[in-house]
Design a protein around this nucleic acid. Sequence first.
DNA 1: ACACCGTGTCACAAAACTGTCTCCGAAACG
DNA 2: CGTTTCGGAGACAGTTTTGTGACACGGTGT
Lengths: 231, 231
Amino acid sequence: MTPRILIVEDEDALALLLRYNLEAEGFHVEVIMRGDEADLALREQLPDLLLLDWMLPGISGIELCRRLRARPEAERLPVIMLTARGEESERIRGLKTGADDYLVKPFSIPELVARIHALLRRAAPSRVASLIVVGDVELDRSARRVRRAGADVHLGPTEFKLLEFLMSHPGRVYSRESLLNNVWGTDVFIDDRTVDVHVGRLRRVLNRGRKADPIRTVRGSGYAFDERFGR
Amino acid sequence: MTPRILIVEDEDALALLLRYNLEAEGFHVEVIMRGDEADLALREQLPDLLLLDWMLPGISGIELCRRLRARPEAERLPVIMLTARGEESERIRGLKTGADDYLVKPFSIPELVARIHALLRRAAPSRVASLIVVGDVELDRSARRVRRAGADVHLGPTEFKLLEFLMSHPGRVYSRESLLNNVWGTDVFIDDRTVDVHVGRLRRVLNRGRKADPIRTVRGSGYAFDERFGR
DNA sequence: ACACCGTGTCACAAAACTGTCTCCGAAACG
DNA sequence: CGTTTCGGAGACAGTTTTGTGACACGGTGT
């Protein structure tokens, strides 16, 4: 249940500091100090999040990240890169390699923690594959079924796809345009506002007789499934 | 949402050709023909990509690029240098100055377009690195959400963009004019004082029931997000 | 042929947001 | 101090954006 974080960092002091703080934050932390050892360990088991130093003995963080991204099961593993200031100019390369986020040393622990939470929140659902659960809303892709507080909720095909897409990245805001592209498809010519109507219908049936609405309207931007919903 | 490209090129014919083709490609193009004017313009607002001629009246492209790289907020701005054949030997100097790519005239438009797309793609993740944290204020771009001490704070679109801009360079003081350019856009005609009103609204909702105010007013100059805030 | 369901669009109402004004106190200035 | 300049706050009217009921259309099963 508690997220597992793997730290790959060769500096003793920093590794210790990170372990201490992240464990205090309630994470299950593991530290490896060499790139090549981390590579081996990652073949055995994937953590929920990887904290990767840029320069490492054995294999560099960049190379490690590149190898990782080549594995389909690690495709969505959140990776945060740590770099010293001098290496900063290469940050573009770092992100291109597939890191999800990027911190320049020295960084503040609260900031790191915030970023970890943000990435975990976003990554969580995708690894569960067929069942997405947020708060009291469950969506089962393979069974094409949605439940609210355990009770079945009947959705039309479009409403289902819409909810599925929104729930696939809880918290993330999608523009109407993006929703049209991802739910309806890119080749259709449909009015933006149609999205509003479907969101409205989705809400009506999903919230029937309930007060809390898991779908957040973001004025001027679009809609999001509230990842904090029910917490 | 369409990427904005600034072309700095003193040759009429080439400038026109570029504008025509890049606009056809769907970019929002602006052309400036003098180096010194470009320098001024770049202080006001940064484009998404800069197309820079090597030789320019006023300030040379090299110098412009060097100045640009000295500014932290312009660090990631993709820059493509254009050089005449005779200058080609100096390519190393060009890249060393901080250009991300360079093209020798005459070049083919499709190649230019391809490189532009490549650079924009590469630069993209940097803006998606979505979380900014200063003190107890978190701003999550992708979720379009702001939290103060962990609690959600609801901001309107303009307030959000304003805070986003201020927080993207904590400590830096922005004039009202600069804020108008970067938050509202260059093409609007709006009173300076409107910025005050929005800062006021932002403060009210961000500090609700709290004493510490992370936004610093610099009398006679503008506003800044206090980088020491919370430390 | 008919009832039914899911959809896309529209029009109107409600809600949220915006830019400007005015007034007032605070800060600089001599 | 008296004066002037500048920024903060509330009020307000206009605009933009979103929520929603109504409606028409097409497909499907009966």
